[in-house]
Protein backbone atom coordinates (compact mmCIF):
# COMPACT_ATOMS: atom_id res chain seq x y z
CA UNK A 1 0.00 0.00 0.00
CA UNK A 2 1.31 3.46 -0.91
CA UNK A 3 2.41 5.92 1.71
CA UNK A 4 0.02 8.77 2.48
CA UNK A 5 1.56 12.19 1.68
CA UNK A 6 -1.40 14.32 2.78
CA UNK A 7 -4.08 13.10 5.18
CA UNK A 8 -7.07 15.32 5.95
CA UNK A 9 -9.52 14.44 8.70
CA UNK A 10 -12.71 16.21 9.80
CA UNK A 11 -11.67 19.51 8.23
CA UNK A 12 -14.21 22.25 8.87
CA UNK A 13 -14.28 25.87 7.81
CA UNK A 14 -17.27 28.13 8.35
CA UNK A 15 -17.67 31.68 7.11
CA UNK A 16 -20.34 33.05 9.46
CA UNK A 17 -23.31 30.72 9.19
CA UNK A 18 -22.09 29.26 5.89
CA UNK A 19 -20.53 25.82 6.28
CA UNK A 20 -18.06 25.77 3.41
CA UNK A 21 -16.10 22.74 4.59
CA UNK A 22 -18.09 20.53 6.93
CA UNK A 23 -15.90 17.57 7.75
CA UNK A 24 -13.56 16.77 4.88
CA UNK A 25 -11.79 13.40 5.00
CA UNK A 26 -9.27 12.84 2.23
CA UNK A 27 -6.06 10.88 1.71
CA UNK A 28 -3.58 11.66 -1.06
CA UNK A 29 -0.98 8.98 -1.64
CA UNK A 30 2.61 9.88 -2.41
CA UNK A 31 3.21 10.32 -6.12
CA UNK A 32 -0.45 10.32 -7.12
CA UNK A 33 -2.49 13.04 -8.73
CA UNK A 34 -5.77 13.81 -6.96
CA UNK A 35 -8.42 15.86 -8.73
CA UNK A 36 -11.09 17.52 -6.62
CA UNK A 37 -14.23 18.44 -8.51
CA UNK A 38 -17.29 20.31 -7.34
CA UNK A 39 -19.55 23.23 -8.15
CA UNK A 40 -18.64 26.88 -7.80
CA UNK A 41 -18.50 28.06 -4.20
CA UNK A 42 -18.35 24.54 -2.75
CA UNK A 43 -15.03 25.22 -1.02
CA UNK A 44 -12.46 23.66 -3.37
CA UNK A 45 -10.16 26.69 -3.20
CA UNK A 46 -10.72 26.97 0.56
CA UNK A 47 -9.55 23.36 0.86
CA UNK A 48 -6.29 24.13 -0.95
CA UNK A 49 -5.80 27.38 0.97
CA UNK A 50 -6.33 25.51 4.24
CA UNK A 51 -3.55 23.08 3.38
CA UNK A 52 -1.31 25.99 2.34
CA UNK A 53 -2.01 27.84 5.60
CA UNK A 54 -3.64 30.79 3.84
CA UNK A 55 -6.96 30.02 5.56
CA UNK A 56 -7.23 28.84 9.16
CA UNK A 57 -9.70 25.95 9.51
CA UNK A 58 -12.17 25.86 12.40
CA UNK A 59 -11.61 22.17 13.15
CA UNK A 60 -9.93 19.04 11.86
CA UNK A 61 -6.40 18.00 11.00
CA UNK A 62 -4.13 18.27 7.96
CA UNK A 63 -1.16 15.93 8.03
CA UNK A 64 1.75 16.32 5.64
CA UNK A 65 4.26 13.48 5.91
CA UNK A 66 2.47 12.39 9.07
CA UNK A 67 2.73 15.74 10.86
CA UNK A 68 -0.39 17.78 11.61
CA UNK A 69 0.51 21.23 10.23
CA UNK A 70 -2.34 22.82 12.17
CA UNK A 71 -0.81 21.76 15.49
CA UNK A 72 2.89 21.67 14.61
CA UNK A 73 5.21 24.51 15.72
CA UNK A 74 5.15 27.37 13.23
CA UNK A 75 8.66 26.69 11.92
CA UNK A 76 7.98 23.01 11.29
CA UNK A 77 4.63 23.76 9.62
CA UNK A 78 6.35 26.32 7.40
CA UNK A 79 9.03 23.82 6.41
CA UNK A 80 6.42 21.20 5.53
CA UNK A 81 4.44 23.71 3.48
CA UNK A 82 7.57 24.81 1.65
CA UNK A 83 7.32 21.49 -0.19
CA UNK A 84 4.23 22.82 -1.95
CA UNK A 85 4.27 24.61 -5.31
CA UNK A 86 1.05 26.27 -6.43
CA UNK A 87 -0.35 27.24 -9.80
CA UNK A 88 -3.06 29.82 -9.17
CA UNK A 89 -6.22 30.06 -11.23
CA UNK A 90 -5.30 33.37 -12.87
CA UNK A 91 -1.55 32.80 -12.68
CA UNK A 92 -1.17 35.39 -9.88
CA UNK A 93 2.04 36.61 -11.49
CA UNK A 94 3.71 39.60 -9.85
CA UNK A 95 3.03 42.34 -12.37
CA UNK A 96 5.77 44.60 -10.99
CA UNK A 97 8.42 42.02 -11.93
CA UNK A 98 9.54 40.68 -15.32
CA UNK A 99 8.74 37.09 -16.23
CA UNK A 100 12.15 35.68 -15.29
CA UNK A 101 11.99 37.27 -11.83
CA UNK A 102 8.54 35.77 -11.33
CA UNK A 103 9.90 32.32 -12.15
CA UNK A 104 13.02 32.74 -9.99
CA UNK A 105 11.20 34.53 -7.18
CA UNK A 106 11.44 31.65 -4.71
CA UNK A 107 15.15 31.19 -5.41
CA UNK A 108 15.85 34.91 -5.01
CA UNK A 109 13.70 35.15 -1.88
CA UNK A 110 15.69 32.40 -0.22
CA UNK A 111 18.88 34.17 -1.36
CA UNK A 112 20.32 30.86 -2.53
CA UNK A 113 21.62 32.18 -5.84
CA UNK A 114 22.84 35.41 -7.42
CA UNK A 115 20.49 37.36 -9.69
CA UNK A 116 22.53 36.41 -12.78
CA UNK A 117 22.39 32.72 -11.88
CA UNK A 118 18.68 33.00 -11.02
CA UNK A 119 17.99 34.45 -14.48
CA UNK A 120 19.78 31.52 -16.13
CA UNK A 121 17.80 29.05 -14.03
CA UNK A 122 14.55 30.88 -14.88
CA UNK A 123 15.30 30.70 -18.61
CA UNK A 124 15.92 26.94 -18.29
CA UNK A 125 12.62 26.41 -16.47
CA UNK A 126 10.76 28.57 -18.97
CA UNK A 127 12.11 26.29 -21.70
CA UNK A 128 10.63 23.30 -19.86
CA UNK A 129 7.16 24.85 -20.19
CA UNK A 130 7.71 25.72 -23.84
CA UNK A 131 8.62 29.40 -23.51
CA UNK A 132 11.65 30.96 -25.16
CA UNK A 133 14.29 33.25 -23.75
CA UNK A 134 12.60 36.21 -25.48
CA UNK A 135 9.75 35.96 -22.96
CA UNK A 136 12.04 36.25 -19.93
CA UNK A 137 12.30 40.04 -19.98
CA UNK A 138 8.64 40.75 -20.69
CA UNK A 139 6.13 41.99 -18.15
CA UNK A 140 3.32 39.53 -17.26
CA UNK A 141 0.78 41.98 -18.68
CA UNK A 142 2.35 41.50 -22.12
CA UNK A 143 1.57 37.76 -22.11
CA UNK A 144 -1.52 35.90 -23.30
CA UNK A 145 -3.61 33.89 -20.81
CA UNK A 146 -1.99 30.63 -21.88
CA UNK A 147 1.50 32.06 -21.56
CA UNK A 148 0.68 33.44 -18.11
CA UNK A 149 -0.41 29.95 -17.03
CA UNK A 150 2.84 28.52 -18.34
CA UNK A 151 4.85 31.14 -16.45
CA UNK A 152 2.77 30.37 -13.34
CA UNK A 153 3.57 26.68 -13.82
CA UNK A 154 7.25 27.49 -14.31
CA UNK A 155 7.22 29.48 -11.06
CA UNK A 156 5.47 26.63 -9.25
CA UNK A 157 8.03 24.02 -10.34
CA UNK A 158 11.12 26.23 -9.93
CA UNK A 159 11.83 24.97 -6.41
CA UNK A 160 11.21 21.36 -7.51
CA UNK A 161 8.33 20.89 -5.04
CA UNK A 162 7.36 17.49 -3.64
CA UNK A 163 3.70 18.56 -3.68
CA UNK A 164 1.96 20.59 -6.36
CA UNK A 165 -1.43 22.30 -6.28
CA UNK A 166 -3.29 23.37 -9.40
CA UNK A 167 -6.25 25.71 -9.01
CA UNK A 168 -8.45 25.44 -12.11
CA UNK A 169 -5.44 25.16 -14.44
CA UNK A 170 -7.44 25.30 -17.68
CA UNK A 171 -10.02 27.94 -16.77
CA UNK A 172 -10.16 30.74 -19.32
CA UNK A 173 -8.16 28.86 -21.94
CA UNK A 174 -9.33 27.49 -25.27
CA UNK A 175 -9.57 23.65 -25.45
CA UNK A 176 -6.28 23.27 -27.30
CA UNK A 177 -4.32 25.48 -24.93
CA UNK A 178 -6.08 23.71 -22.04
CA UNK A 179 -4.80 20.38 -23.35
CA UNK A 180 -1.30 21.84 -23.77
CA UNK A 181 -1.29 23.07 -20.15
CA UNK A 182 -2.55 19.68 -18.97
CA UNK A 183 0.27 17.94 -20.86
CA UNK A 184 2.80 20.26 -19.29
CA UNK A 185 1.35 19.61 -15.83
CA UNK A 186 1.49 15.84 -16.29
CA UNK A 187 5.00 16.09 -17.66
CA UNK A 188 6.27 18.32 -14.83
CA UNK A 189 4.63 16.24 -12.09
CA UNK A 190 6.05 13.05 -13.60
CA UNK A 191 9.57 14.46 -13.93
CA UNK A 192 9.56 15.79 -10.36
CA UNK A 193 7.81 12.71 -8.94
CA UNK A 194 5.45 15.07 -7.11
CA UNK A 195 2.19 14.43 -5.36
CA UNK A 196 -0.47 16.73 -6.78
CA UNK A 197 -3.92 18.07 -6.05
CA UNK A 198 -5.85 19.83 -8.79
CA UNK A 199 -9.25 21.42 -8.55
CA UNK A 200 -11.21 21.85 -11.71
CA UNK A 201 -14.59 22.03 -13.40
CA UNK A 202 -13.13 20.70 -16.62
CA UNK A 203 -13.83 16.96 -16.87
CA UNK A 204 -11.48 16.39 -19.78
CA UNK A 205 -8.72 18.09 -17.83
CA UNK A 206 -9.60 16.13 -14.68
CA UNK A 207 -9.15 12.84 -16.51
CA UNK A 208 -5.92 13.95 -18.14
CA UNK A 209 -4.12 15.14 -15.00
CA UNK A 210 -5.68 13.01 -12.26
CA UNK A 211 -5.05 9.45 -11.13
CA UNK A 212 -7.80 9.71 -8.55
CA UNK A 213 -10.76 12.03 -8.13
CA UNK A 214 -13.00 13.24 -5.33
CA UNK A 215 -16.32 15.07 -5.44
CA UNK A 216 -16.78 17.94 -2.98
CA UNK A 217 -20.46 18.41 -2.28
CA UNK A 218 -22.21 20.15 0.62
CA UNK A 219 -18.92 20.61 2.46
CA UNK A 220 -17.89 16.95 2.35
CA UNK A 221 -16.25 14.45 0.02
CA UNK A 222 -19.34 12.71 -1.31
CA UNK A 223 -17.50 10.36 -3.70
CA UNK A 224 -13.95 9.35 -4.46
CA UNK A 225 -12.47 6.89 -6.89
CA UNK A 226 -10.27 6.54 -9.95
CA UNK A 227 -10.35 9.62 -12.20
CA UNK A 228 -11.01 7.30 -15.15
CA UNK A 229 -14.39 6.44 -13.61
CA UNK A 230 -15.58 10.04 -13.33
CA UNK A 231 -17.84 9.78 -16.35
CA UNK A 232 -19.07 6.27 -15.68
CA UNK A 233 -19.67 6.11 -11.94
CA UNK A 234 -23.27 5.41 -10.91
CA UNK A 235 -23.02 8.04 -8.14
CA UNK A 236 -25.90 10.38 -8.94
CA UNK A 237 -24.20 13.56 -7.70
CA UNK A 238 -21.02 12.92 -9.70
CA UNK A 239 -23.03 11.78 -12.71
CA UNK A 240 -25.08 14.97 -12.74
CA UNK A 241 -22.01 17.17 -12.26
CA UNK A 242 -19.73 15.51 -14.79
CA UNK A 243 -22.44 15.36 -17.45
CA UNK A 244 -23.71 18.86 -16.69
CA UNK A 245 -27.33 17.79 -16.21
CA UNK A 246 -29.74 20.52 -15.12
CA UNK A 247 -31.81 18.09 -13.09
CA UNK A 248 -30.59 15.89 -10.27
CA UNK A 249 -29.66 15.91 -6.62
CA UNK A 250 -27.42 18.97 -6.87
CA UNK A 251 -30.18 21.18 -8.14
CA UNK A 252 -32.56 19.74 -5.57
CA UNK A 253 -30.05 20.72 -2.90
CA UNK A 254 -29.81 24.25 -4.25
CA UNK A 255 -33.59 24.63 -4.15
CA UNK A 256 -33.77 23.94 -0.40
Amino acid sequence: MSEIKIRIRGLKKYFGAKKVLDGIDLDIETGTGMVVIGGSGTGKSVLLKSILGLVTPDAGSIEIDGVDVLKAPRGQARELRQQIGMLFQNGALFDSLPVWENVAFGLLAQKKVSRAKARDVAVEILAQVGLGVDVAGLSPSELSGGMQKRVGLARAIAARPAIMFFDEPTTGLDPIMGAVIDELIVDCVKKLGSTSIAITHDMASAQRIGDKAAMLYEGRISWSGPAAELLTTPDTVVDQFTHGRAHGPIKMALRK
Binding site: L54, I84, M86
Partner: peptide
Protein backbone atom coordinates in the same frame (compact mmCIF):
# COMPACT_ATOMS: atom_id res chain seq x y z
CA UNK B 1 -2.31 42.11 -5.51
CA UNK B 2 -4.81 40.87 -2.91
CA UNK B 3 -7.73 40.36 -5.29
CA UNK B 4 -5.53 38.70 -7.94
CA UNK B 5 -4.02 36.23 -5.40
CA UNK B 6 -0.53 37.75 -5.72
CA UNK B 7 -0.29 38.17 -1.94
CA UNK B 8 -1.26 34.51 -1.44
CA UNK B 9 1.30 33.59 -4.09
CA UNK B 10 4.02 35.33 -2.06
CA UNK B 11 3.18 33.14 0.92
CA UNK B 12 3.49 30.00 -1.20
CA UNK B 13 6.97 31.16 -2.30
CA UNK B 14 8.41 31.21 1.24
CA UNK B 15 8.01 34.98 1.47
Amino acid sequence: MRVTDQIDALSTLST
